[in-house]
Amino acid sequence: MNKYFLIVCLAICLDIHAQDDYDSMIAAMEAAKLQQDSIDMSRLVVVYGYECRTQDADGQAVVDRMKVAVQIGNHVTRSYPYRKFREDADAIDYLSPNNYPVLKAESYCFMPEVWTGYPEGKQTVRDHIMPNHYETCQALQPIRWTLKEDTVTVGGYLCQTATCELYGRKWLACYADDIPTTAGPWKLGGLPGLIVAAQTADGIHRFRLVSVQRIATPIYYEHNAITIKLSEEKLIKRRQKIFGNKHYPKCPTYYIPDRQSLNNSADVTFGQVGDDSFCIINGVLENHDAHVYQPLEIK
Results as ranks from 00 to 15, higher is better:
L209C: 05
S231Y: 10
V70I: 06
V45Y: 01
I242P: 14
T136H: 03
N99A: 12
L10Q: 13
V125K: 14
L95F: 06
C137L: 12
V62G: 12
T181M: 03
G193H: 03
A32T: 02
S231A: 08
E113Q: 09
S42N: 05
I7V: 08
I242K: 14
V68Q: 01
A32R: 09
S24R: 09
A266E: 11
I92M: 10
C279P: 11
Q213C: 06
P101H: 03
D20H: 06
L10E: 14
V196H: 03
K148Q: 15
G271P: 05
H128M: 07
Q199C: 01
H247D: 14
A18I: 03
T253V: 14
Y82T: 00
T227P: 05
E233W: 04
V152Q: 14
C279K: 15
L296A: 09
I195K: 08
D37P: 00
E135Y: 13
R43E: 11
D150H: 12
A57K: 15
N132P: 06
P252K: 09
M130I: 11
R169Y: 00
E30M: 01
A139L: 12
W171R: 01
P192H: 12
Q199K: 10
D40A: 00
K3R: 15
T124L: 08
T269C: 14
N99T: 02
L285H: 02
R144T: 07
R65V: 09
F5G: 11
T153V: 13
N263I: 13
G203N: 11
A216R: 00
E297M: 05
E106Y: 00
A69S: 11
M41H: 03
Y221L: 07
I129Y: 09
T54P: 02
I179K: 11
Y293G: 01
P112K: 14
I179Y: 11
G155Q: 06
K33R: 15
W115F: 08
E106S: 00
L147T: 13
H205L: 12
